[in-house]
Amino acid sequence: MAAKYSTIIIPTASRWIGAMLAATIAAFALWLAAPAAHADELTVTPFSSARGGQAPQPWRFTSLPNKTPTRFEVIQEGAQKVLKVEADQSYGNLVHATRVPLNTSTTLAWRWRVDTFVEDANLRTRAGDDGAAKLCVFFDFPAERLSFGERTRLALARRTTGEEVPSEALCYVWDKKEAKGTSLVNAFTQRMRMVVLESGPAADKAAFVSERRNLLADYKRAFGDEAGDTLPDVVAVAVSADADNTQGHGLAYFTDIDLRGFASTRSAGFVLPPARAGSAE
């Protein structure tokens, strides 16, 4: 029985770690050391500040062993620098450590564009758990608040990697098939929830689509069932794209990511505002 259990849990844990965008030890050390943001402080280094093709520090590339890496490159497109993200039978994440309090003022804004969708992607299955464009937010939720089973899996992931794998992740997805506004639990782990912000090709395929999210509202919708009144800090953001399960290809672009918050704001009596859809520019 023990042998059968290990053959199931270890491969699952390995992909679970990947689904949670497991970063290098150095990146996690930055997460723990990163100071809390001051009022309305810009906390994510802009891609447009890159001097070459590599995303500026503290952005760090992370992946899994024996995976073809997804390519992340800062390029000049017209008057702006943007991040080009190309997944080709590959897996990879670009992670930025930070520490921002989660409250009513915490917002995340960016613009993105998908030129090529991963054709056979299916967010509802493990075999199809790929995507051309995801923007994920990691939260430092106390592990002791999780169920015994979830704590066990989280502890296994942390022990296997030797890293402080984040306890919660919320990913914003641009998908080809799922309807706009769809909320999903990741096929590999309860620790990751997904929200489909855009679906299918944009009306103007050459235009970037703008997004602005109230993170507390989205967090409550995604993790309110387990979080209750707990408001964990935001400890990282990540751009992700993968096509390793489907052996497909995806191509997307991201502009600078704007994460802001006020340390003094409280959310007692907070009421969820209506969700806001993205708008083309």
Rank of each mutant, 00 (worst) to 15 (best):
M1W: 10
K4W: 10
T7V: 15
T7N: 11
I8T: 10
P11F: 06
T12N: 15
S14E: 14
R15W: 15
W16N: 02
M20T: 03
M20I: 00
L21D: 05
A23V: 03
A23I: 07
T24D: 15
A26P: 06
A29T: 12
W31H: 13
L32T: 15
A34C: 12
A36E: 12
H38T: 15
H38E: 08
S49W: 01
A50Q: 05
A50K: 02
A55W: 04
P56L: 11
P58G: 03
W59Y: 08
R60I: 05
R60Q: 15
S63H: 05
N66T: 12
P69I: 00
P69M: 07
R71Q: 13
E73C: 02
E77H: 09
E77S: 13
V85E: 04
S90D: 00
G92E: 05
H96V: 06
H96G: 01
H96C: 06
A97D: 00
L102C: 09
T104K: 14
T104V: 13
S105I: 07
L108P: 00
A109E: 06
W110I: 03
W110S: 06
W112M: 13
W112C: 12
D115K: 14
T116F: 05
V118Y: 04
V118A: 06
A121P: 03
A121T: 06
D130S: 04
G131D: 05
G131R: 02
C136Y: 08
P142L: 01
E144S: 11
E144K: 09
E150I: 00
L154V: 02
L156R: 00
A157F: 00
R159A: 13
T160H: 10
T160Q: 10
A169D: 01
V173R: 04
K176E: 14
A179V: 04
K180H: 08
F188D: 11
F188A: 07
T189P: 01
R191T: 02
M192Y: 08
V195W: 10
V196N: 04
E198S: 12
S199V: 05
G200R: 10
G200P: 13
K205T: 13
A206Q: 15
A207E: 11
S210Q: 15
S210G: 09
E211Q: 14
R213V: 07
R213C: 05
R213E: 05
R213S: 02
N214W: 05
N214M: 09
L215W: 07
L215M: 09
D218Q: 04
D218R: 04
K220C: 11
G224L: 02
D225A: 14
A227R: 02
G228L: 07
G228S: 08
T230M: 14
T230G: 07
D233F: 15
V237G: 02
T246A: 06
H249N: 01
H249E: 01
Y253E: 10
F254K: 04
R260P: 01
G261T: 12
F262V: 14
F262G: 09
A263H: 07
A263F: 07
T265D: 15
T265P: 03
T265I: 11
L272M: 12
A280W: 12
E281R: 14
